[in-house]
Simulated assay, not measured.
Amino acid sequence: MIVLGLDPGLGTTGWGVIRAEGNRLSHLANGRLKTVTSDSLARRLAHLDTMLAALLADHAPTAAAVEEVFVNTNPQSTLKLAHARGVALLALARVGIEPGEYAPARVKQAVVGTGRAEKAQVHAMVSRLLPGCTIAGSDAADALAVAICHAHHLANARTRG
């Protein structure tokens, strides 16, 4: 199974693609989708949608997950994050994928073992779980962590059901 993880953001959306075969995980690709900060909100969201459509066409995932919105101290930042997340959910729905949705603490718990892990701990554990991959920054590391979390969730659901 090919699993796409997304860490949505209006400025930068991290993405990671892994292969999950039972409990074995392997890295396929990761990166960051960036929008131009000087563009209007509508133009940035449209550009994000176009980039996500190309990503989905290139990697043809069979499953996907998106990190849930966490509330920032700045309400405007939270709204921008929610807009980007909505575009990600729409892009996945458009290709027929019902995504998993995970709170940041749940992703950290699944990957590091504690929901209060720091970004550096997540990055280090993703590197350990996917040996040999070069991670394109913290947004991509977070996206790979989302993909790993979803792969674990799907594997557990199969063994229970």
Rank of each mutant, 00 (worst) to 15 (best):
I2Q: 15
V3N: 05
V3W: 10
L6C: 06
D7N: 13
P8R: 07
G9A: 03
L10E: 01
I18H: 07
G22M: 09
N23I: 01
N23L: 12
R24Q: 14
L25M: 08
L25P: 01
H27S: 06
L28H: 13
A29T: 05
N30L: 00
K34G: 00
K34V: 13
T37H: 13
S40W: 02
A42N: 10
A42P: 00
R44Q: 12
L45A: 14
H47K: 14
H47C: 04
M51I: 01
A53Y: 00
A60F: 01
P61A: 03
T62D: 14
A65E: 03
E67H: 04
E68W: 00
E68G: 03
V69K: 04
V69E: 02
F70R: 08
V71H: 12
N72H: 15
S77E: 05
S77R: 12
L79H: 05
L79F: 12
K80T: 04
A84R: 01
R85E: 02
L89F: 11
L90V: 13
L92Y: 08
R94H: 11
V95L: 07
V95M: 04
I97K: 10
I97S: 06
E98H: 15
E98M: 13
G100K: 07
G100N: 06
G100E: 08
E101R: 15
A103D: 11
P104Q: 10
R106N: 11
Q109D: 10
V111N: 07
T114A: 09
R116N: 11
A117H: 05
A117K: 07
E118H: 12
H123N: 11
S127C: 12
R128H: 12
R128W: 07
R128M: 14
R128Q: 13
G137C: 07
D142S: 10
A143I: 05
L144F: 07
L144P: 05
V146W: 03
I148C: 09
C149F: 00
A151F: 01
A151L: 03
L154F: 03
A155D: 12
A157N: 10
